[in-house]
């Protein structure tokens, strides 16, 4: 491990590394470990899927990878930097710069144009106002929706909405794209197109993608599968 993290092997520095992550929930008098000493690393340009049955700790793990939740103990290294001690505001800033989220429910703002939806993360960044719409349009072009830029979510199909959401995840040029059941709300054809888009982003742009799903068939689309069961990694 130390060898992998040495400065001479820059290209092999994990973009994200979890070390002995424990997340404990207390329900009344009983405590239980949703995550029990989870360690793994994700390397630049990897397409990794995290899968497991419901209640396995998959969601908890995703929240910790997404910097939305703090672990009870353990270390999170983001591009080699320990961010375990980051407070809410610093975490928000880190999410804004380094992560791109894709959700099952798309989570687009209603009555708001595709362009404005895509530009939303830039509102919280240092990108000057004049560049935001230009960048958003670039991303919409990348996902093949340049002609839908002025449309609101209600005027788009489910698959198109998810592509707008992917454009939004890309607009801040994140180091990891974190997709949580991205095809869960789509028919199989639209779902396949979304996965194709992920493959394109991975292969042609070298994006690092983490796909969280309960669907083993979908998980198999990734380069590498991390299976979690009862809060422990059972295979990686």
């Amino acid at each position: 491990m130390t060898k992998l993290l040495s400065k001479n092997a820059k290209n092999r520095t994990p973009v994200l590394e979890l070390k002995n992550i424990v997340k404990t929930y207390t329900l009344g008098t009983t405590t239980f470990n949703a995550l029990d000493s989870v360690s793994f690393a994700i390397y630049p340009g990897e397409f990794v899927s995290i899968t497991g049955p419901s209640g396995s700790g998959k969601s908890t793990l995703m929240h910790i990878i997404g910097l939305l939740d703090n672990p009870t103990s353990g270390q999170i290294l983001l591009e080699g930097q320990d961010i375990s001690h980051f407070k809410e505001e610093a975490l928000a800033k880190t999410r804004n710069i380094t992560l791109g989220f894709v959700f099952q429910q798309f989570n687009l703002l209603a009555k708001t144009s595709a362009t404005e939806n895509v530009a939303l993360p830039l509102l919280y960044s240092d990108v000057p106002k004049n560049d935001r719409n230009k960048l958003a349009l670039e991303m919409l072009t990348k996902v093949g929706l340049a002609d839908k830029a002025p449309n609101t979510p209600a005027q788009l199909s489910g698959g198109q909405q998810q592509r707008v959401a992917i454009a939004r995840a890309l607009v801040n040029n994140p180091i990891i794209i974190l997709a949580d059941e991205p095809t869960g709300n789509l028919d199989s054809k639209s779902g396949a197109e979304i996965i194709k888009l992920f493959h394109h982003l991975h292969e042609d742009e070298g994006r690092t993608i983490v796909l969280v799903t309960h669907d083993m068939d979908l998980a198999k689309q990734a380069q590498r599968i991390i299976i979690i069961r009862d809060g422990k990694i059972s295979s990686k």
Binding site: G66, L68, A92, N96, F101, Q105, L120, P121, L123
Partner: peptide, 13 residues
């Protein structure tokens, strides 16, 4: 949900 999304993509409290 909008608030959740805004926070996820970088809005601090």
């Amino acid at each position: 949900r909008e608030i959740g999304l805004r926070k996820a993509i970088g809005a601090y409290p």
